[in-house]
């Protein structure tokens, strides 16, 4: 499978106290480990994104512990209360140990 690509939609600016909404999507097959290869009859090994984290200025604001029932190309929408300017960091952890990240800046006025 090609390398997973994250997509993030987060606001660039907000007023202090605003609740901002963030949407994230990443390309990933989310193989459950419950399917069999139709030709060989062997179980296809599990490979999912098992953790998603959203941090702001290094502090976790939201995270998800993921099991196999989250759909392929996982989508998450969540919120944050904008208190100060800073940087978001979004982190996806793959079963195979790979980490995919994306950053986004927010200016609060």
């Amino acid at each position: 499978m090609a390398k997973s690509k994250p997509r993030v939609k987060a606001p660039k600016s907000a007023s202090k106290g605003d609740i901002v909404t963030i949407k994230t999507l990443i390309s990933h097959i989310m193989e459950t480990g419950l399917r069999k290869n139709k030709k060989t009859g062997k179980i296809i090994p599990r490979r999912i994104i098992n953790k998603f984290q959203a941090k702001f200025e290094g502090t976790e604001i939201f995270s998800v512990d993921i099991d196999t029932a989250i759909s392929a190309n996982p989508f998450f929408q969540f919120s944050m209360k904008a208190e100060k300017s800073g940087e978001f960091e979004f982190i996806w952890t793959d079963d195979n140990g790979e980490i995919y990240t994306k950053k986004s800046k927010l200016t609060v006025s």
Binding site: I19, V20, T32, F56, T59, I61, F62, V64, T68, A69, I70, S71, P74, F75, F76, Q77, F78, S79, M80, K81, E83
Partner: peptide, 12 residues
């Protein structure tokens, strides 16, 4: 810090 306890996703 989440502001509201609301989230969306897609599941199987």
């Amino acid at each position: 810090l989440s502001g509201v306890a609301k989230a969306s996703s897609r599941m199987r």
